[in-house]
Design a protein around this nucleic acid. Structure first.
Lengths: 186, 186
DNA sequence: TGCACCCGAATGAACGTTCGATCAATAAAG
DNA sequence: CTTTATTGATCGAACGTTCATTCGGGTGCA
């Protein structure tokens, strides 16, 4: 059944507003206007602004996971998946800059209760952990690899979005290759 | 002469508030209370909240640069400086989490007009560019190296701050070593 | 009739900012 | 050596605006 059309409009409009006016400037009245919905209607779906933002965060997280998993073939060898995941993430974030901007503002705000960067729970941390456990990656704290792997995806995407520099597919593959030769065992 | 004591109190209090309540929750009245200053006094030093935040950003950037440069010996070989810069940055951000949190929220908000991550102007980008130009680092777009280098520092610091995982000096050196062997020429 | 959905004006709290009143200190005048 | 201006820093109550949220009423389908 999926989520209601109105709800989706509210989510997407909120992302637009956060991108345009920042976390603080994204008011409920603006949101109502942007989503073409009455102010009260928003409160039919969400009990408060805080909750809306929390649910928007989950909504975005799911979008990322879905995107990556859709492109991923679990039967492929580890190395292929290592490449694919990085490239998929880069593509998602550069294709959806507002999600990246929202994430960055959300994570570093007190809305984020757990306060740990979101790239830990979920499939992604497991994937790197699995790499270490099964001997594809050199023995080390998987968190350390998260720093290198996710750090480079996110910053590369930000550079693309904010800066004028564009990384073509060759650049991206070069970067992942460097990452792989650094982390891979054997 | 340096900046006024009041001004510094306002800066530091604003960092505290942004860390505790987020960008949106850091109001001028709270700031006045926190800095033990009347509301009007803030406007003696800053023409608006926007300007205060912009100047706070510059204030923080200078702090980072000063910290790194203070520990750095320009006469040392490139490789040493490559290590030192990463470790200094990690130490600064983990010692001053509120600066990191403020940066992340500021950069991704519309206050940041230039919209390019701040790690570009300034000494870092030059340092990596210099490495490529002078043949210490393998030929590639320096921006690509920024993604790997800064991305890993920032995310490692965030993991330390938010998560319960702590990277000891050995872990950190291991990470930089991986970084070096990946980027270094020859 | 009932229930879920939707509306938008109304509400009080909170926001950023202003402003006239002090205060302390230094300079000028007697 | 006092007294009187002048200045910049500081205060906090007050202002108009905008905010998140509420509420009473409407609409359409079961």
């Amino acid at each position: 059944m999926g989520i209601s059309e109105k709800k989706r409009a509210i989510y997407e409009s909120m992302l637009d507003l956060v991108e345009a006016y920042g976390f603080h400037g994204a008011s409920m009245s603006l949101l109502a206007k942007e989503a073409k919905v009455a102010a009260g209607t928003i409160y039919h779906y969400f009990s408060s602004k805080d909750e809306l933002l929390k649910e928007l965060y989950i909504y975005c997280k799911e979008q990322v996971e879905d995107w990556v998993l859709a492109e991923l073939d679990e039967r492929q060898p580890y190395k292929e998946r290592f490449y694919k995941r990085w490239l998929s993430l880069y593509e998602f974030y550069t294709a959806h800059p507002k999600v990246l901007v929202f994430f960055e503002q959300y994570i570093n705000s007190p809305y984020n209760q757990e306060r740990s960067p979101h790239h830990f729970r979920g499939g992604f941390f497991q994937f790197l952990k699995e790499g270490v456990d099964e001997g594809y990656l050199k023995e080390a704290k998987p968190e350390l690899y998260v720093a290198l792997y996710m750090g480079s995806v996110i910053l590369a995407a930000k550079i693309k979005i904010f800066g004028s520099i564009s990384f073509d597919m060759e650049d991206r593959k070069l970067l992942v290759t460097k990452l792989w030769t650094t982390l891979a065992a054997g």
